[in-house]
Simulated assay, not measured.
Amino acid sequence: MFAVYAAEIGLREPLRGLRQGERPAPRPRPGWSRIDVRAAALNHHDLWSLRGVGLTPDRLPMILGTDAAGVDEDGNEVIVYPVIGLTGHGLAPGEPRSILTEHHQGTFAEHISVPTWNLVPKPPGLSFAEAACLPTAWLTAYRMLFTKSGVRAGGSVLVQGAGGGVATAAIVLGKAAGLRVFATSRDETRRRRAVELGAVEALAPGQRLPQQVDAVIETVGAATWSHSVKSLRRGGTLVISGATSGDRPAHAELTRIFYREINVVGSTVATKDELEGLLSFCATTGVRPVIDQLLPLDRAHEGFARMDSGEHFGKVVFRLGAAPG
């Protein structure tokens, strides 16, 4: 089967380790299902895998991709929840829990195999391309906003780094939930697009907000950390799930954090129940993922390069077979 995979990792130019071509199709395994992939979305996790984060040379070659939507063996349209073994489903004794591409082959392939428990019905109102955007970036944003931040309708939130998959999702979801959303970006065009998505205002990094907010959605890390802390009201919550600019800020802001009683909350693996909640939210509100590019899988290198450059706004999605519907 055709697939896109990591053949080498940790190179000075990580994309040189990316390959495409024939790989063995998944073998039947009790309690697992084979999925014909129709669409698969790119995440920063895939770039980090090429850099050797979470992936070791002994597991190569590894098909990349954590997100997918497709059709199972019974003809059902499904979305893949990418955490294998969160509650033990589908794992042999002693087999570790992981996310796809760490121990099990990923979704950038014509066919994949996952535990049957990991399949969630795809709502008919979502295209395969839209559905493929949800299980990682959009689900991360959903968990940060609605499970971790504590913000409710009428509250306010700052989303750092508008443009990435999690940040664009947080803007759209926050707006749909009745939140007052602010955003930041270094790029004027991205700030304008953030407002078009529903932010009440988009500012340059470090620029003072018109008001202090109830929560900050932080995925940028070191570059925006101080601004995030200073933007919070007393007792506000900073939710962090990434550090694309590095994890060692110049100033930890410890005095401000304890004096203003700021909550710092980490957010990582979302649950299957939260994915089902996200799907219900999309169906109820009509919100849809922001897709930057929809490319055939054989142009995956182009999509990786676009994400690596930081030029994308929203999700890069790969399609397989007929155009996703």
Rank of each mutant, 00 (worst) to 15 (best):
P14D: 03
I9T: 09
A204L: 15
T255H: 11
A92F: 00
S226V: 14
S245C: 11
Q207W: 01
R51W: 08
S245A: 14
V316C: 07
P296Q: 05
L119Q: 04
F318S: 00
R59H: 13
T244P: 07
G266T: 07
P14S: 07
R234D: 12
R288C: 06
G303C: 10
G165M: 06
G154L: 09
S149V: 04
A177G: 13
R180K: 15
R97E: 03
L119D: 05
D72M: 04
T56I: 10
G85H: 08
S98F: 00
A41M: 10
R27F: 01
W225T: 11
S149T: 04
A68T: 07
G325M: 06
F128W: 04
V166G: 06
E196N: 03
G17L: 12
E77A: 13
A132L: 07
I240V: 15
R299G: 00
L275Y: 10
D292N: 14
G163C: 10
V213G: 02
E253W: 03
L126T: 05
A322Y: 00
Y259I: 09
D308G: 00
E276Q: 15
V80N: 10
I79G: 06
V200W: 02
H45Y: 14
Q160C: 10
S185F: 09
H301W: 09
T189G: 15
Q211W: 12
T140C: 10
L173D: 08
A323C: 02
P14L: 07
Q20T: 01
S149Q: 04
P123S: 05
E196H: 01
R38G: 00
G70M: 02
T271P: 03
A109N: 12
A223M: 09
V265Q: 14
V71T: 12
R193V: 02
A283S: 15
K230D: 15
I84W: 01
G235K: 06
T184G: 05
V114I: 04
G125T: 08
K315D: 08
A68N: 10
R319C: 03
G17E: 12
V71D: 01
L11P: 02
P121V: 05
E8W: 09
H251V: 14
F281K: 02
I171Y: 01
E253N: 11
V181P: 00
R16T: 02
S185K: 06
S156D: 01
T184R: 07
P93N: 09
P26L: 09
P57F: 11
D273R: 14
V200Q: 03
L100W: 08
A183F: 00
R180T: 02
L275I: 05
L197R: 01
L254V: 14
E302H: 13
